[in-house]
Structures are given as structure tokens and as C-alpha cells.
Design a protein around this nucleic acid. Structure first.
Ligand SMILES: [Mn+2]
Ligand SMILES: [Mn+2]
Ligand SMILES: [Mn+2]
Ligand SMILES: [Mn+2]
Lengths: 217, 217
DNA sequence: ACTTTTTTTTAGTCTAGTCTAAATTAGTTT
DNA sequence: AAACTAATTTAGACTAGACTAAAAAAAAGT
């Protein structure tokens, strides 16, 4: 059996490994708001269970099995988020903490039935792809941050980089939802803010925002 | 915050206290399949938190607050069971273990929305009443075990005493579902088995079964 | 190449929650 | 009332998962 702690570590290592294969003790500690010494302890335990490849001072990677577990936890997290938003009418900024708990419920049957109940969704409320029961993520969509677009470019919002509720509420407030089509009307050299045209209305967003909005291309 | 363990203890004490106000260390140990010494330790902790009244060697009762917590856990357990059966098509004998985990998810908003989503059900799949958000159980139905009925009595099955999956599957198999109307055609003195008439068909059940089937009156 | 800084690990401590074995208290029987 | 038995508590130990402080290794700066 796996503890909640172990699962959270594996998930963190997976997420951190997406850019750059190996992950450092400090990065994991930061991601989980723990001390580096606690992480070292856990890495040894995870290595004993063959879920990570760990070499002292050299960082850590997931084994095939560890990666598979991480993907199952992420699958559960995203399916539960989808359930909360589509069936229980939560807003997309309210679901993360609850899913953080629900993702540890231990029942494969439960999650497969939930998946079916939801109609086998491919993306969660934040636009993140949901792994299937075999851990496959087949997100064929390509995206780039808004900050990579040039004046005159068009695109559709399909995701966010920063998933904090404060950012998500800002987006709600400004009408920047997933699926919204945007058109880059102007980029101000001065502060790299973006003037967008959305349904014939204009909206200016900061550089910070432009880096956290993912646009399909 | 409350741990999963603490919640399971409070729930067990509540259930055991239904018949006879005070509960013994040994009873709790048996209910949770733990050792009596572990129970003693936990009772001290629960007493420190003012959730139980505990006097050495004298048994334990829930405080008002402890009872309220227990009722909230039971509410969550029964609502989740209802969700699993009515929305995810689980059978009534498959849901207990999953609900045993889900009942510890910490979010009042979640459970209230789930309640609403399910249409504020009053009973769970096993016929047990679901406490409302204030912990009130208003089960006006009166029931008695089938074993209390006499020859010629009629009634409707509204619950079970024993909720183990083996018993529940037996009931499924014999068509003894909640809501089924039964008629006591015969009681055999020999072994106290009951011959029932159900939709003009006859079915004989053992004394053991008769003690675990609750009939409305 | 040596020094300083940063990262990582080790050593030792703490708490929650469990256990076994021994001691104590309560209840029952003679 | 004493003796036995059953229930309960205490004492001591263990594990998981966290922490702090100190030591060691790696990386960066001169
Ligand atoms: Mn989590
Ligand atoms: Mn998400
Ligand atoms: Mn439980
Ligand atoms: Mn039930």
C-alpha cells in the first residue's frame, strides 16, 4: 500500500520532471513546502520501493513504475476536479484543495466509474489533459503562452500555467475563460502588456498574465 | 483538525452508544479491530479534546461536540454511499469500504453540494437514515426485526441490521430488496425459520436472516 | 587552486498511532 | 471475605513522517 505522503511526493517529482528529466531535493522540498532533510528521508524510502532512481547528491528520477503511479494520481486529481465543476457546480478556482484529498482515495473501480460517469473527459477544468486508465496522455493540442504571440496573431485560450485561485478568479472576472478566442491587437514595448480584442471588445493584460495564459496554435 | 483515526473512533463510539449510553474499551477495540491498550490511549486524547467523557475503568460517552462530529462523519458516509449507488451504479454491498475513506474528506461545502446533487436523500442504500447538515436524524419510521413478527403479519423491508456484503449479496440473490412487501405465511417452531410470501411466491429464510431484516410497522 | 556559498545529507528529536507484556482494578464465584 | 477471572490501564517499544542543527559534498567565485 501507498501512503498519502508517498503519493504526493511521486506526483511532485513527476511534475517537476516535465521540464528537465532529473529533479533536485530542494525543488521537491519547495514544491511540497517541506524541509530538504525530510525530502532526503523520503527519497530513500521511495528508492527502496523501486519507485525512484536516487543517487545521493545527484538528484532523482521516477522509475517506470513510479511514473505510472504518479500518472494515476494525476488522473484521479483531474477527474475529481472535473466532477466537482461539472456535477457539483464548483468554480474552477475552488476545486484544487478538495481534489488534493480525493486523489488519494484508493479504488480503481471508483475512478473508472467516475470517468465513465463524466463521459471520459479529456481535459480537466483548467485545460490540463487527463491520463487514461493506462496512464496515457494523448494531448495532441499544441500550445504556447500568450507572451509568445505577435501583434495580429489569433488564438484560443486552452489552459493556464499558474493555477492559483487568485489568478483563476482574475481570469473569470475579465471574461478570460477556456475556449475564448483572442486577437492580439497591440503589444506595448513599454511594459510588454498585451491589448487583446475579444468579441469586438478590447482588454489589456499585463506581461505577467501573458506568460500564464496558454494559447492553442 | 481531526485525524482519520480520531474520526473513526468517534463514529464507533457513537454507533456502540445507540443501545446503552456508555461504551467499554473492549467494545471499541473489537469494533475497530484494535487492541484495548490502543483504545485507552486514544480515549485519553479524545478526552483532552473534550470530545468524550472518559473516566478510567468506567467507560466512555460522547460529549455534545463529539456526538456532533460523529453525526457529521456518518452523514458523509451515507451520502457518499448514496452517490456511489445512485450515480455510479455500484451495488449496495460494494460501497462500504470506499465510503469508509470518503467520509474523511474535509470540506463542508463539498458534502452540502453532494447532498443537494442527490436531492437531499433521507436514507442511504442500506435503509439507514442520513443526518442533515445540523446532525438531525428525523427517521419517523419505526421498524422491528422480521423475527419479531407473527404468523399472518405483513410489512415492508426497510433496512438491515447486518450490513456485511455477504449478507447483502444473499438478499439480492433472493430478491429481498428494500421496499419489498413480505407476508409471514408460516413460522417453523423447529428452527424458527420463516416462510414468507412475496408477490405470490414463497421463500423460506433462516432464523439468522429473520433477525437481520428490518420490517416497517 | 583556494575560498566561499549553496545544496544535500546525516544525526538526533518529536508526535501520532499502533503493538506486546505486565500491572492493576473491577466483577464474579466460592 | 477471599480467591479467581475478566477488563482495563500502564510501561515500554516500534514505525512513519515530519523537524532542527551540524556535517559533508558540490558548485561558484576569486
Ligand atoms: Mn494530495
Ligand atoms: Mn487541474
Ligand atoms: Mn473511516
Ligand atoms: Mn450504509
Amino acid at each position: 500500500m501507498r501512503s498519502r505522503s508517498e503519493e504526493d511526493y511521486l506526483k511532485a517529482i513527476y511534475s517537476l520532471s516535465i521540464k528537465g528529466s532529473s529533479t533536485s531535493t530542494n525543488e521537491i522540498a519547495k514544491a511540497l513546502t517541506m524541509k530538504a532533510s525530510s525530502v532526503t528521508d523520503m527519497l530513500k524510502k521511495l528508492a527502496d520501493k523501486k519507485w525512484v532512481n536516487y543517487i545521493k547528491y545527484k538528484g532523482v528520477t521516477l522509475t517506470k513504475e513510479g511514473k505510472q503511479i504518479a500518472l494515476q494520481i494525476i488522473r484521479k486529481h483531474r477527474l475529481w476536479e472535473t466532477f466537482l465543476v461539472t456535477n457539483l457546480n464548483f468554480k474552477w478556482d475552488e476545486v484544487h484543495d478538495i481534489a488534493e484529498q480525493l486523489e488519494h482515495i484508493d479504488s480503481i473501480e471508483l475512478i473508472n466509474r467516475l470517468d465513465k460517469h463524466l463521459g471520459f473527459p479529456k481535459f480537466d477544468p483548467h485545460g490540463d489533459p487527463i491520463p487514461d486508465k493506462n496512464g496515457k496522455i494523448q494531448d495532441l493540442r499544441k500550445s504556447q503562452p500568450l507572451s509568445d504571440l505577435k501583434k495580429g496573431d489569433k488564438g484560443i485560450i486552452i489552459g493556464v500555467v499558474d493555477g492559483t485561485s487568485i489568478f483563476l478568479r482574475y481570469l473569470d472576472n475579465e471574461g478570460l475563460n477556456l475556449g475564448t478566442e483572442i486577437h492580439v491587437a497591440e503589444i506595448f514595448d513599454f511594459d510588454f502588456s498585451y491589448k487583446l480584442k475579444i468579441n469586438n471588445k478590447f482588454l489589456t493584460v499585463s506581461e505577467r498574465v501573458s506568460k500564464n495564459l496558454l494559447i492553442q496554435f
